[in-house]
Design a protein around this nucleic acid. Sequence first.
RNA 1: GUGGAUGUAGCUCAAUGGUAGAGCCCCGGUUUGUGGUACCGGUGGUUGUGGGUUCGAGUCCCAUCAUCCACCCCA
Length: 410
Amino acid sequence: MAEKLRSIRGIHDGLPQQVEIWRKIESAARRVFARYAVAEVRLPILEPTELFVRSIGEATDIVSKEMYSFVDQGDAHICLRPEGTAGAVRAYLQAGLTRAGTQRWYYCGPMFRRERPQKGRLRQFQQIGVEWFGAAGPVEDVEVLAMAHDFLVEIGLSELRLELNSLGCPACRPAYRDRLVDYLQQRADHLCATCHERMDKNPMRVLDCKEEQCQQQLQDAPEMVAHLCQGCAGHFAAVRCGLDALAIRYQVNPRIVRGLDYYNRTAFEIVTDQLGAQGTVLAGGRYDGLVQELGGPATPAIGFAAGLERLAMLLDAPSPTSPDIAVVALGDVVMDWSLQQAAALRSRGISVIHCGGGSAKRQFKIADRELVRYTLIIGEDEMAQGKVTLRNMSTGEQQLLSPDEIVLPA
RNA sequence: GUGGAUGUAGCUCAAUGGUAGAGCCCCGGUUUGUGGUACCGGUGGUUGUGGGUUCGAGUCCCAUCAUCCACCCCA
């Protein structure tokens, strides 16, 4: 290799130890989601660029500077999906499911954003996402939140913080937004440069600013939860009521702002302080307008996405898996027969490695390094009798057996 | 996109501007029928890359790439 070949910046390999953790998280998700009658969908990784421009919003960072988009050989404008919701809505409409009743979906797969990598942030990362279509009431919000909560408990993360907010709706948000902008403009002199940008692009983001000086100015800034219309206020109250009924702990955080344009009413994040600046491990909310925005009938919907890599960082590495048996073949004449013994054991569901022959010492070293529980020693003596020696690697105990007598304790 | 830190063997790290090293790992040996311990030996490097300064650069300077962390933004 003249030049060292590396994976693309911010795009990492999933090596066995890492994948082991991912699989644990995914299987927990599958178990829990099944209990809520949620079905898996597998959606394209490539989508028309237009889909995200129309759904996420052209002005958002994701669309304006973080998408991997390109023109293919047929002059089509396509991109690697930066998130999962838009594609799910597209699929829902394309399949003609708008009159098929509530659809409860989940998916699991890679997303792509061309950001500067840091802790908990990659250019290719995986999300486990959930989308419920045709779910209008606060009860569904509660159930989605309960499911997210159950999922995290299932993987052993019960101490995470659920933060809840309401973003209002087209009836009440514009008026609130004007009120907020007024407030901010009065104090514009004391706000940081990025907050000035946020005032134009997304004023609610100012509430989130990390600058202490800005936060001081925001002490009594108007909050959406205090300016909800009657419908939104009732919805929000019912969501809180349902969470209380299920004894799911949460705190209202009026400063939660969803990044993507399509959210309304319920918005939530599940956060940890163990992950540095990227503490959000799962986030979502209601997006009642999106289906219509993409050309379908008015369809209420709610969903969330969890970052697989971020969740994995909170879990302990699993102990390495090891084979049950290592086959040690002593002498070339026994090689074929030893291969047959290994094959026979595997056909019984036992995991076996073959140490490949050579000196006994070499083969036992291999067996030792693989952390096997037993070695199966096959030499000319054994083969002549049609038997094998089974050695317990932790006790050193050995016994001569015929191959089909081998029974491993569970 | 902006800022900071860091790049030397597979890994963890040494080396005042003067011959690139150690430990661990790996491979082999100490009875080609017995592992974890011990001893012996061995493989392995264009010092991230490209320039510059110098008699001489791992070391100083510039650029570039990558990793990590933070901003921005977000899962």
